[in-house]
């Protein structure tokens, strides 16, 4: 397993947001992380990304337990996060955004040509056909194009696990389809993808496995091919569905 979380707990003061959460994501697969508002999806992602420290539990990468205290620790392990707000600079062009903070230099001079070439190759390898001009400012791009730039920025660095926080939330139908295709291609190229979404249509369109969080606990992880939407909805809303899920708080077995 590329990434393996076991018994992750995280509290903010007296509030336990995550409680003994487990999750595993392997290279080449898309794992969707679903859950209602407040289920702990974002907190879990921030724990993996090094923004929050976990209280207990282990994060293992390639089977070896790792300490992640800082976004740089995560980046060093090949973990990149694309946040919902994308964090792009509107006044910089596509290439400049892709390489921001990790510019290629030739002496003290920026090697813009090399960066542009590498950007073009990366976008090509992701079969991105929607970015016509790599030298246009990001401000002039559509929502789907911006999402594409943000995802390309995350995979440019030999990353191995890409975490996407609601990448399709603000997109229209055609652009959503393009971003989902891009996510699928990432996995097909051997990356692990953790995909957070509210939209079950998107989840079933692209995910291999679906992990449902319920009130800070992992309600269950199901194969997308075996599950139905209504089962996943039950996991999200009540934490259990048939034989899968958390034990009923009242002790009733179905």
């Amino acid at each position: 397993m590329l990434l393996e979380l076991s018994r992750i707990s995280k509290s903010f003061g007296p509030v336990e947001v995550l409680s003994e959460v487990y999750l595993a994501v392997d290279a080449g697969e898309v794992c969707a992380l679903v859950g209602d508002n407040g289920a702990g999806k974002s907190t879990l992602v921030k724990c993996i990304a090094g923004i929050h420290d976990i209280n207990s539990g282990t994060i293992a990468v390639d089977g070896a337990p790792r300490e992640i205290h800082d976004p740089r620790d995560a980046a060093a392990l090949g973990i990149e996060v694309v946040y919902q707000d994308l964090a792009l600079c509107d006044n910089l062009d596509v290439v400049e955004n892709l390489f921001l903070g990790r510019e290629k230099l030739h002496g003290v001079v920026l090697d813009d040509d090399a960066m542009e070439q590498l950007a073009a190759e990366t976008l090509d390898s992701l079969a991105v056909r929607t970015l016509r001009d790599l030298r246009q400012n990001v401000a002039s791009l559509s929502g789907g194009q911006r999402q594409t730039v943000a995802i390309a920025k995350a995979v440019l660095w030999n990353s191995r696990l890409v975490i996407l926080d609601e990448p399709t939330a603000a997109l229209g139908v055609a652009q959503t389809r393009q971003v989902l295709e891009l996510i699928r291609r990432l996995a097909d190229q051997g990356l692990a993808v953790l995909f957070i979404s509210h939209n079950l249509n998107d989840v079933f369109a692209v995910a291999d496995r679906i992990a449902a969080l319920y009130l800070g606990r992992m309600a269950g992880v199901v194969n997308a091919a075996d599950a139905t939407q209504s089962q996943v909805v039950e996991l999200i809303t009540s934490g259990r569905s048939g034989a899968v899920g958390l034990p009923d708080p009242n002790g009733v077995q179905s």
Binding site: A87, L88, N91, L92, L100, G101
Partner: peptide, 19 residues
């Protein structure tokens, strides 16, 4: 120079990019 524009364009993005 590049970082200067980035800081002015989106400071949060610049911070996350390690500028």
């Amino acid at each position: 120079g590049r970082h200067l524009y980035a800081v002015g364009g989106n400071r949060e993005a610049a911070i996350r990019a390690g500028v």
